[in-house]
């Protein structure tokens, strides 16, 4: 595996291929994925992780594109992971977030990966956590995660990221939506994107009122933006950069480590169950402790 690279050097495709293939392995799941994640978590690293979420078409990718050049002024390099939905019918997916990205800032300093949700609920893919950990270990100092278009509750990103930007639009809802649980409770900053559309002022007032009711010292700020023109993006980035700088050291990493352990445990149990069901453990219940130990030894051998 490689290290995130310096700005001037030409793109090292061999290093990138290694990283890209490791992500594919993680997406394929199973033991190999767990081993890769374990190794990643053992590597000292401490990336800032920024989640960007909001309803379909709100302008998440367009904002990523507008924020990238600003982020590159503060961070030596940036990795973007963009999740889009898989079809529940065919398993296929149209991963279209790249279409919005202005590639002029690409080169060695930006790594961009599109990821299909592959049936996972919660606004991200099952492989998203481990991929963040891998990118972190690969020394990308800022990792941006774009979730798929979410509704009101698919907020798993909150557990994986240091900070979360919620993207909404004018006309997104009235005072009732603004006070419903979910979206408005979890963001660290809010963009009212498509500020060129009617209804901006009302949306801003409602959202700010709702955020002021949160039991926090400093309620999140609301930034009107026009991602496609860059309007308001500098102010938004200023806030995000400060939030990331102030985020407690290793806070999201600790949560990702706990989640990784939980995933490993679940995988182990399910593998053992499969092993038992595949003949290894016929009538296990009636076996003596000695036989059970043999079984475990067999299982262990099979796995390693």
């Amino acid at each position: 595996m490689s290290n995130a690279a310096d700005a001037a050097a030409p793109v090292d495709f061999e290093q990138r291929k290694a990283l890209a293939r490791a992500i594919t392995s993680i997406e394929s799941g199973g033991n190999q994925a767990l081993t890769l994640e374990e190794a990643a978590l053992a590597t000292p690293a401490n990336a800032h992780v920024l989640g960007i979420t909001g309803p379909p078409g709100a302008g998440k990718s367009s904002l990523v594109s507008a924020l990238l050049p600003l982020a590159l002024q503060r961070y030596s390099s940036v990795a973007v992971l963009a999740v889009d939905p898989s079809s529940a019918v065919t398993g296929g997916a149209l991963l279209g977030d790249r279409v919005r990205i202005d590639y002029r800032h690409f080169g060695n300093r930006v790594f961009f990966r599109s990821m299909a949700s592959r049936g996972h609920q919660g606004g991200i893919a099952a492989a998203t956590r481990a991929t963040i950990n891998l990118l972190d270990a690969d020394q990308w100092p800022l990792i941006i995660i774009e979730t798929l278009g979410i509704g009101q509750v698919e907020l798993d990103i909150v557990d994986l990221a240091d900070r979360v930007l919620v993207v909404l639009n004018p006309g997104w809802g009235d005072g009732f939506q603004a006070n419903k649980a979910g979206l408005t409770e979890q963001g660290d900053a809010f963009a009212l994107n498509k500020a060129d559309r009617p209804g901006l002022e009302q949306a801003k007032i409602l959202l700010e009122q709702s955020l002021q009711c949160l039991p926090v010292e400093r309620p999140p700020s609301v930034f009107p933006t026009i991602a496609t023109d860059g309007d308001g993006v500098t102010e938004l980035w200023h806030d995000l950069a400060q939030l990331l700088a102030d985020s407690p050291t290793e806070s999201s990493k600790k949560r990702r480590i706990l989640a990784a352990r939980e995933a490993a445990r679940a995988q182990l149990l399910s593998d053992f169950e499969t092993f038992l069901n595949c003949g290894g453990g016929e009538a296990t219940q009636e076996k003596s402790p000695g036989t059970a130990t043999d079984l475990l030894a067999q299982f262990y051998q099979q796995r390693s």
Binding site: G92, L95, S114
Partner: peptide
């Protein structure tokens, strides 16, 4: 291609 089960990455 999507409907045939592929993950298609559009870059324009």
């Amino acid at each position: 291609l999507r409907d045939a089960g592929f993950e298609v990455i559009m870059i324009g």
